[in-house]
Design a protein around this nucleic acid. Structure first.
Lengths: 188, 188
DNA sequence: CAGCTGTTTTACCATATGGTAAAAAGCACT
DNA sequence: AGTGCTTTTTACCATATGGTAAAACAGCTG
């Protein structure tokens, strides 16, 4: 739980009472590998904070290809935020790549934080916006070749390489797993 | 100016007095083709709203390659928002691809909107977050081949194709301009 | 209209990546 | 250890894209 509080306090100050209120509104849950935190066609019901484990955002193209759009590791917010706030249906999966532990807030609890904590909206929006901003800067870049994308991936997510299947990494980098395997061989 | 007000009112209600206050704090400016709205190493001083013209966000890689990360057309917000709010230096250019007209708000004016208009922060954050969200969904996808990326680009930005140089579109799609030229030939 | 300048197209070859298939390696369960 | 699963690696060929260079085109100016 300290992980979450430390994370939040990066974005603004909370007094002890407010911290306790946040904790009181939260809930710890576990998800097993391959379970989904949210799914296309369903309204996202919770904001998550990853304590342990790795998730990926992904979807299927019309011709059935599995495309990984992002990875979310420990000490990160995880939520389809726009659809969560608007309570509209998601278009992607958020799937556990490993067994995982999360802190979650229901929509109701999340809204109560705004009502009860003066500075919460400010903190919340900074968190969400920085989160979106960083995601937009760490994704694979179309103009780079596959090897460069792989090397940058390792740089951006050094702890993931041994924890998620190669297929997911390949589908994140936009190459086939055969190509990624070849790329790895050529590097080492 | 009506364009801006219509845009804002999509995200929440403002009464006449509040609308006038927004207008009063705004300023219309013109930029010529190739001028920059913001630049790496400089702190973004203004939020922009594009009335007329097309902009692109771009940067240079270590080996001098010009990479276009996004296009911004009419009736869109344009700002390096995270760096604008934090008043930290930008890492990219926002450059006019055509002669352009903008409505702009200085940091001070933008903050005054929050102070004077009760519902402004709510509207503002919805605008910014939706803007970031949409950008993350309209960009070229690494797992698609160049032809598909080009076709999706035309779909997402049908009005841009004749207004910005081919080089910029190529650098957005992550292909050389020669390849893009060949792709266009094969399509038609 | 001629002469510049910058943009877009074409051509040629080299190479990275995809598609398909099969082999190898890793892992769980008995 | 052996049997079935999934994941990863290898191999082969086909093809899309990159790199380099030159030609064609378009817009501007005198």
């Amino acid at each position: 739980m300290k992980q979450l509080i430390d994370y939040i306090l990066q974005y603004g100050h909370l007094n002890e009472e407010q911290i306790n209120f946040v904790i009181q509104r939260s809930k710890v849950i576990s998800l097993q590998k391959d379970e989904c935190f949210s799914q296309p066609g369903k309204i996202p019901r919770q904001v998550g904070f990853v304590l342990e484990g790795v998730f990926r955002g992904h979807y299927y193209t019309n011709d059935g290809e599995d495309v990984t759009r992002c990875f979310i590791g420990e000490n990160s917010l995880m939520v389809d935020y726009v659809n969560f706030e608007a309570q509209t249906v998601a278009t992607e999966y958020l799937q556990a790549c490993t067994d995982a532990q999360l802190i979650v807030f229901s929509k109701q609890s999340w809204d109560e934080l705004s009502e009860k904590i003066e500075s919460w909206d400010n903190i919340k929006n900074k968190m969400v916006q920085l989160c979106m901003y960083q995601k937009s800067r760490t994704g694979p870049v179309v103009s780079q070749d596959a090897t460069t994308r792989y090397l940058e991936f390792i740089n951006n997510y050094p702890t993931l390489i041994n924890r998620v299947p190669l297929t997911y990494i390949a589908s994140y980098l936009g190459v086939t797993q055969q190509s990624l395997s070849r790329i790895r061989k050529n590097i080492h």
